[in-house]
Nucleic acid binder design. Structure first.
Lengths: 231, 231
DNA sequence: ACCTGAACACCGTTCAAGT
DNA sequence: ACCTGAACACCGTTCAAGT
């Protein structure tokens, strides 16, 4: 009674099925049983093509991010190019919330390396050089990944506009309750009016401004004592 | 043969046991069975005091972050106060890597609200006001959470100095392979020499520089079309 | 009211048996 | 070489029965 298989199994077809299931049923809905049922095969069949569930999730995220990076138009203005890239990642995670959680799970996965590279080349074009490049790169990448994960988690809990509003009101109320400072309370009231995408872009601009501005770094001796030097 | 219970069960004792298990056995080692065995009670006993495993993880993370926020010394210089707070969170996540993953999972959880508040009050003290406050706050919070999650994930995979070095070499090699730009390759070679804690602080300083510097924000009409206005 | 632990409805992964 | 699906070793959560 299951749909008959038309093609042989392959890593690509398995990953494609995984993305479809994640988009439809969410992260909790991704089970090996669901994937193999979708492909009309036995539960153990996929283990000939993928290492396991972790590999499956990383490959699915790379499928989504890979398309974004390939499609990202490269503006002549390097700042604008970085904004476009960041927004592309944001929109992709908005459309596929499970990617947001996945990118925070493993720094070495292909999708994250793609983002590092995309950000890296554009920062070079912006004129960032030497030791400032890894610093600015990690700042921007970590901000993008952090914001995307938080937005995706929020989108997962409150998918439609009404529940989103209720969610934000609850957040604003809780926050206002925590602090009596009138300025903080005012900021809390602004939460329910904000647009996630706008706010995300505002953060990108803050990091861009900070990356080109000369900043008063303190000497490293004073702060880098606990973890110490590696090796 | 199990150790006899000396006290009655309570939410605090359950959360304390959860933190101990997470620190010892990692996130994969946290099972309801492990918690109840540690407390020498039946598997279903904890459900009288906590909602479930999600609640348990959120409460454990709040336990760790709550202590950090309470202990964070408040420097008179508002920039230094922000650096101290960020480093406190970073160090806590370095010591308890599972917290890094947990904070990215749910924006409304107590631990994340604590961080929002701590960052918010210090930004006000720095002179950030009005609409710039939520923008700067979300930028900093999302950067802290993103960087902490990435660092924690790396620390989980490579706990000691030797495996960390091998890990970074592999990352640098993969990155250099992806791009032929000599400047990017040079940046990739710098990866294996960097210190995570130093780089984290450099990112905080970039953010601080960008928050006080006037930056060339573009008009919102041009970018905020997809998600649209809420409500 | 709180605790117990068997039972339930699931998981990911393995592996002998087939093609 | 690839696929099948039963079997294995786990999960989180529920709930009748006890105290």
């Amino acid at each position: 009674m299951t749909t008959r298989r038309s093609d042989a199994l392959s890593r690509e077809r398995i990953v494609e099925a995984t993305i479809q299931i994640l988009d439809t049923a969410g992260e909790d809905g991704l089970t090996v049983r669901a994937v193999t049922a979708h492909l009309a095969t036995g539960r153990g069949a996929i283990y000939h093509h993928v290492a396991g569930k972790d590999d499956l999730l990383a490959a699915a995220a790379d499928g989504v991010i890979g398309r974004v990076m390939a499609a990202a138009a490269d503006d002549e203005d390097p700042k604008q190019a970085i904004r476009t890239l960041a927004l592309g990642i944001f929109d992709a995670i908005d459309a596929h919330p499970w990617v947001g959680a996945q990118l925070s799970r493993e720094p070495l996965q292909p999708a994250v390396l793609r983002i590092w590279t995309g950000v890296g080349v554009r920062l070079v074009r912006l004129g960032v050089r030497g030791a400032a490049l890894p610093d600015a790169g990690s700042a921007l990448v970590n901000y993008i990944l952090g914001a995307a994960a938080q937005h995706a988690a929020g989108a997962r809990r409150a998918p439609d506009a009404t529940s989103r509003q209720a969610y934000l009101d609850r957040l604003a109320a809780q926050w206002a309750e925590l602090d009596t400072d009138p300025l903080v309370r005012e900021a809390a009231s602004l939460i329910s009016e904000h647009d996630d995408r706008e706010q995300f872009l505002a953060g990108v601009d803050i990091f861009l401004a900070g990356s080109v501005a000369p900043h008063d770094r303190q000497v490293s001796d004073k702060t880098g004592s606990q973890t110490g030097v590696i090796g």
